[in-house]
Design a protein around this nucleic acid. Structure first.
Length: 269
DNA sequence: ACGCAAATAT
DNA sequence: GATATTTGCG
């Protein structure tokens, strides 16, 4: 059975998200513009200060921190944020994080830390994780039972990202017998703890809502100018994604006023 | 802090 | 109505 070993190893390797996907963490749920609009304090990359960009003034937040004088203005934590929309991308990041943490360490807090998505809370992750587990459970039941393949619309999101093999196995994780290249400690210790609450100034913006189950996946909006999206242009501007950027978050209250925060446009991955 | 089921909110 | 969030318990 040694073939099995090498086999799974290979598969395991392939499943690995590119370093770029996990390491350069610190994605932002909030676009700079939005952040400004909301007076959100975007945590800078305070991990490894690469000081080799002299001409790149980080879009720091001059931010209005002039309110530190206690004038009733620190409800950051107690403020209700808009519902988080789990885009396929965001979910993928979630899955990657879980995959690399291993089932064992994949708890809301660590997942959240690994994901390094600004604005993402532990509750967000916990909630998502709970649902994801249910999804995995369902998957197992279906695959082993012998039922037909079905893609419930309910699982669309989860289906958007491949499920790492180990997730379905209540078995063992590839850690005891093999040495996991522990490239884990990426962003494990970082911000958070005392300077995390992105304070939303509930202005009145609505982001896009993504509730178009019937449509494929054209659901994206909210954009900004981060490498994240830029790297996607393997082919010369075939489609100009970079045209309608931002501003997508606008009146979307067609439904009654749903304020939602969403992530990058991204097609799929 | 976790996890989970159920209730609740959008 | 689908989804995300909150709540109550262990």
């Amino acid at each position: 059975m040694r073939e099995d070993d090498t086999d799974w190893f290979t598969r395991w390797e392939e499943e690995l998200p590119s370093p770029e996907e996990l390491i350069p963490l610190s994605q932002s749920l909030i676009s700079p513009d939005l952040a400004l609009a909301f007076d959100i304090r975007l945590p800078n990359n305070s991990g490894q200060p690469h000081h080799h960009h002299h001409s790149t003034p980080p879009p720091q937040l001059p931010s209005s921190q002039a309110n530190s004088s206690g004038a009733g203005d620190e409800p950051a934590r107690t403020l209700k944020r808009p519902r988080l929309v789990w885009t396929p991308q965001l979910h993928k990041r979630f899955v990657d994080a879980v995959a690399h943490l291993g089932i064992k360490n994949a708890v809301p807090k660590t997942i959240m830390q690994l994901m390094s998505v600004d604005g993402l809370t532990r509750e967000n992750v916990a909630s998502h994780l709970q649902k994801y587990r249910l999804y995995l459970k369902r998957m197992q039941g279906l695959s082993s039972g012998g039922g037909g393949g079905s893609d419930p619309a309910t699982d669309r999101l989860f289906a958007s990202s491949p499920v790492p093999a180990h997730f379905l196995h209540p078995n063992r994780v590839p850690s005891s017998d093999h040495f996991m290249p522990s490239f884990v400690p990426i962003a494990t210790l970082q911000q958070q703890q005392q300077l995390q609450p992105p304070q939303f100034h509930h202005r009145q913006i609505s982001a896009a809502h993504y509730g178009s189950p019937t449509a494929n996946g054209q659901s994206f909006l909210a954009r900004q100018t981060q490498q994240q999206t830029l790297q996607r242009m393997s082919t010369p501007s075939l489609h100009s994604p970079v045209g309608n950027y931002v501003e997508d978050l606008e009146s979307a209250n067609a439904n009654g006023g749903r304020t939602v925060l969403t992530l990058f446009p991204t097609r799929d991955d």
